[in-house]
Amino acid sequence: MSDPSSPPSTDVAARVETVIRDVLGLESGDVPASSRLREDLGADSVDAVMLVMALEREFKGKISDEEAARLATVEDVVAHVSLRIGAQGLS
């Protein structure tokens, strides 16, 4: 999941980090790419749902429940969005 064919653009990575910070209420401090959403960043099940909705809103696309279940770390999210983002958003 975290091995995209091309490196994610810094723009996508920064936007993903902003979404994660907003959803999880992380105000300061580093969010390393390897951070695990649940264990390291404290995301609960409601946060996980909110994160998917917020990503869909930010990148104007849809993330399936199956895809969402595989997003465990920050770099998973960046990689997924980078792979799937197209001219028409995530779709």
Binding site: D22, V23, M50, M53, A54, R57
Partner: peptide
């Protein structure tokens, strides 16, 4: 009310 709160 943040945009995230508007969704819920």
């Amino acid at each position: 009310i943040t945009p995230l709160e508007e969704m819920r």
